Structures are given as structure tokens and as C-alpha cells.
Measured scan of single mutants.
Amino acid sequence: MVQRGSKVRILRPESYWFQDVGTVASVDQSGIKYPVIVRFEKVNYSGINTNNFAEDELVEVEA
């Protein structure tokens, strides 16, 4: 279970941040499909630095 402030590695192959490390900004408990919002240092092609992920697409590298 990841929690706010954890450092996580992204396992979603189609993601711009695949294999990159980001910080968990928040975790939604309402039961949505992609409840974990992760914030990154670098921006993607659209200038965005956050994205939603499912918990099984993340691996915690640092608490």
C-alpha cells in the first residue's frame, strides 16, 4: 500500500514516465480505477508533471 509522500517507480509501459521515480501526491479511497496521483520532476510533452496510476502499476522504492 503506497501512501502520500512515498517514492514510487512506474511500471506502466505506455506511460511517459515508465521506469521513472515520482512522489505520491495523494491516494483516493473512493474506489476509482486509478486512485494514486504521482508527481514527477520532469514534465511530459504537454507540460504536465502529474498523472494517475493504479496501485499495481507502482512499486515503492522509498517510504
Rank of each mutant, 00 (worst) to 15 (best):
R9L: 10
N44W: 09
T50C: 15
A54Y: 05
R4Q: 12
Y16E: 07
I32S: 13
N51W: 15
S15F: 05
E41H: 08
I37L: 15
G22R: 01
N51G: 15
M1V: 11
S26W: 14
E57D: 05
Q3M: 11
E41F: 08
R12L: 05
Q29T: 14
W17D: 00
N51H: 13
G5V: 03
Y34M: 07
T23K: 05
K7A: 05
V24Y: 03
R39S: 09
S26G: 13
I10W: 04
S30M: 06
S15Y: 02
R12A: 07
G22I: 06
K42D: 07
Y34D: 03
T23Q: 05
S26R: 11
A63Y: 11
R39M: 13
E14V: 06
N44S: 08
N51Q: 15
V27I: 14
E14W: 13
N44F: 07
A54P: 00
Q19A: 07
D20I: 10
F40T: 00
M1R: 15
N52Y: 09
G22Y: 07
Q19Y: 08
T23M: 08
E55M: 15
N49G: 05
I37T: 15
V59R: 08
T23V: 13
V36F: 13
V38D: 00
G47Q: 04
F40W: 00
F40Q: 00
I48K: 12
V38T: 00
Y16N: 00
S15A: 04
E55H: 15
P13Q: 13
W17G: 01
D56S: 11
P13F: 11
G5D: 02
Q19S: 07
Q29E: 10
V8A: 01
V38F: 03
K42H: 10
N49A: 07
D28M: 12
N49K: 05
A54E: 06
K42Q: 09
Y16H: 05
R4L: 12
G31P: 07
N52E: 08
P35I: 12
R4V: 15
P35C: 14
Q29Y: 14
V43S: 14
S15P: 01
N51L: 07
V21R: 00
V8W: 00
I32N: 10
Q19T: 05
V27R: 05
N49V: 05
T23N: 04
V24S: 00
E14S: 14
V38I: 03
F40Y: 01
W17F: 04
V2Y: 14
N49H: 07
Q3R: 14
N44L: 05
Q3L: 09
S30Y: 06
G31F: 09
I48V: 13
Y16S: 02
D28A: 09
K33D: 10
E41Y: 08
